[in-house]
């Protein structure tokens, strides 16, 4: 062996450092980051909601994904409105809150949802003049 031991050590260190880069890349898998842009974009669709009260209500609220999307006072016996909502094939949940006068006898509200040219409806009964219930509506088609 010829040459300075210091020089030989220097070359060995350089070679080892050069090898370390591809080795590190091979053994350390980059942490995946979910690309939310590849998730199917939520599409809003026209949805018609109709409320039919068995007795005149004093007020109501309709919540979608935890937010009030419709509310009204003294709506009479019927109320209806058009919305643009995401409606996945698994369906949607609507939380329906209705208040009647305390003296109102046993009463109910019928909720009809029209989407994709089809309609589904459900009836929810009040307890002591008050109703707060989550109803699930699947795609009527």
């Amino acid at each position: 062996m010829r040459g300075s031991p210091l020089l030989r050590a220097f070359f060995i260190i350089v070679v080892l450092l050069l090898m370390a880069i591809p080795l590190w890349q091979l053994t350390h898998k980059a942490e995946a980051v979910m690309d939310l842009s590849t998730a199917p974009a939520a599409v809003k669709a026209p949805v018609h909601i109709q409320l039919t009260f068995a007795h005149e209500a004093t007020g109501f609220q309709v919540l979608y994904l935890g937010k009030v999307i419709w509310e009204g006072k003294e709506p009479g016996l019927e109320a209806q409105k058009d919305f643009a909502l995401e409606f996945p094939k698994e369906g949607i949940d609507l939380e329906i809150k209705v208040e009647w006068l305390p003296a109102t006898p046993e009463t109910a509200v019928r909720v009809a949802v029209t989407h994709n040219y089809g309609s589904t409806e459900q009836t929810a009964w009040a307890v002591k003049g008050s109703l707060d219930k989550v109803l699930t509506f699947t795609d009527p088609q």
């Binding site: 698994e90 949607i92 949940d93 707060d132």
Partner: peptide, 16 residues
């Protein structure tokens, strides 16, 4: 149960 149903209604059904 009423509270659970209202809380879960905040989550779209396709994300459950």
């Amino acid at each position: 149960d009423k509270w659970v149903r209202a809380k879960i209604a905040e989550l779209p059904r396709d994300k459950r």
